[in-house]
Design a protein around this nucleic acid. Structure first.
Length: 485
DNA sequence: ATGTCC
């Protein structure tokens, strides 16, 4: 099978948009489009990610385009940094690979009411206290332990259940996508094996690229919007990047297995088995949807509990009057039912976002009232030790990319390659020399996430803002990195 | 991403 795609097959539409026409391969139902610069397109051609994007264009019921952003790289079946929307009423298919193994992996940004000068002298103290209060690393649990019935409440009510139990504050929920939970979720679609894996993992960070950073607001691009989001220059923020841990992973594993066994039954003959999908309206499709929603609720509860722990630590270090508030929480691995205009008709689509962040423009009803005039905050982490961005979604993103943009810098090399090319202890030293406190038990874990293993975040951001899918509000710079091994 | 292979 030829998986390489030649540059000649790709048509330039504008400086930030390229297209592989639907005529490129006979099984494509729609064109594949990638929001990218010429320079970054070269990177995308170096792995199988564009072949995967072409495969996505064959998905039953896919509408308009198979889309990818500049942070595209190879994933399970679907590329990471990709978006696919299918018509629910007209043979649309739901695919676990289009959402990813880490269901509702996402970013939460917290704002403290402290400034850099106040935090600087105590940075090691506060960073290591958070490192101790938020368990991290592969397979790690131990923040709290939930009984089966309690875990089931988390699956049904997400972060809202934890708020009822006395963890966190009401505004944490109000400034979270979906207000911290999908409603009316049938949690019985989550296997007992998945539930068991989740019981010890609420309030834990995980490993890989998951992290918690203490940051300062380094630059403001839009003073008015920043004020509405409660951000000022030199203010200290905390960014949490994690997902649904072993529970979400098990949900994906369970349903990929089930759905794979029925491809023939549904008359699907997909070019890559990793694209395995189910008719959206089939029993299996609906069961996966429910399990996916339950796992998403688990992830929101997870970030909510971490927020609670950070707040406790912050107040113990800087005093009880210090405030930690949730600026926003947004997923970048999720599937959602949303309405879009297709050929002049309003249609309900199921939008797969895999390593892609929702970026709704102003006045959308799903944005908190306070933010509605400016648009939805979009939180984009950079690679370790560089910078992260706060952006706002635009109407153009709704019109051109199903209300979505990128999710981060995107990997430029595999974890194994990164480990070979990097000395973890040197990287630790470099970060410390840049004034960044590093809380990580293993140098190997650091090496996997080395900046050279990632694309340049500024370039990725320039593409989405250049294409006017989002607007810049602020740039955040890390002063402490907390991560698992 | 992930009890990094039931």
């Amino acid at each position: 099978m030829n998986r390489s795609i030649s540059r000649n097959a790709i048509k330039k539409i504008s400086d930030y948009l390229y297209e592989i026409p639907a005529s490129f391969r006979e099984d494509m139902k729609v064109p594949a489009r990638i929001f990218v610069s010429e320079k970054m397109l070269e990177k995308a051609l170096s792995d199988n990610s564009l072949w995967q994007l072409v495969n996505v264009a064959t998905l039953p019921g896919i509408q308009k385009y198979a889309l990818a952003m500049a942070d595209i790289h190879q994933g399970y079946g679907f590329p990471i940094g990709g978006i696919a929307a299918v018509d629910i009423a007209n043979e649309g298919a739901i695919s676990p690979g289009g959402i990813g193994y880490d269901i509702n992996c996402g970013i939460r940004l917290l704002a403290s009411n402290n400034f850099f000068e106040e935090v600087k002298p105590k940075i090691k103290d506060v960073a290591f206290s958070i490192f101790n209060a938020v368990p991290s690393g592969t397979g790690k649990g131990g923040a709290i332990s939930l009984k089966t019935k309690e875990l089931e409440k988390v699956l049904q009510k997400g972060a809202r259940y934890l708020l009822e139990k006395g963890y966190g504050i009401k505004s944490d929920i109000e400034f979270c996508e979906e207000k911290g939970a999908f409603e009316n979720v049938d949690f019985t679609q989550v296997s007992s094996k998945a539930k068991k894996r989740g019981q010890e993992q609420i309030g834990t960070l995980g490993s890989g690229n998951h992290f918690l950073e203490i940051q300062i607001v380094d630059e403001i691009f839009d003073e008015k919007a920043a004020a509405i989001l409660g951000l000022e220059k030199n203010q200290v923020t905390i960014m949490i990047h994690c997902g649904s841990r072993g529970l979400g992973h098990q949900v994906c594993t369970d349903y990929v297995h089930e759905i794979l066994s029925k491809q023939d039954e549904w008359g699907y003959n997909l070019v890559d088995r990793q694209l395995a999908c189910a008719p959206f309206n089939s029993i299996e499709g609906q069961n996966y949807l429910q399990a996916m929603k339950a796992a998403a609720n688990f992830a929101w509860a997870n970030r909510h509990m971490i927020t609670h722990r950070v707040r406790e630590v912050w107040q113990s270090v800087f005093g009880p009057d210090c405030k930690i508030s949730t600026v926003y929480d947004v997923s970048h691995n999720i599937g959602k039912c949303e309405f879009y205009e297709i050929d002049g008709k309003r249609k309900e689509l199921f939008v797969h976002r895999k390593g892609a962040t929702r970026a709704f423009g102003p006045n959308h009803k799903d944005i908190p009232l306070e933010y509605r005039p400016i648009g939805q905050p979009v939180l984009i982490p950079g690679d370790m030790g560089t910078a992260s961005y706060v952006l706002l979604g635009t109407q153009k993103s709704i019109d051109e990319s199903f209300g979505s943009i990128c999710h981060g810098a995107g990997r430029a090399m595999s974890r194994t390659k990164a480990k070979k090319q990097t000395k973890g202890f040197l990287l630790r030293q470099e970060l410390e020399e840049k004034g960044i406190t590093v809380c990580c038990n293993s140098d190997r874990g650091l090496a996997e996430e080395a900046p050279i293993a990632y694309k340049n975040i500024d370039e990725v951001i320039n593409v989405v803002t250049g294409a006017k899918l989002a607007k810049k509000v602020a740039r955040l710079k890390p002063i402490a990195v907390i991560k698992g091994d």
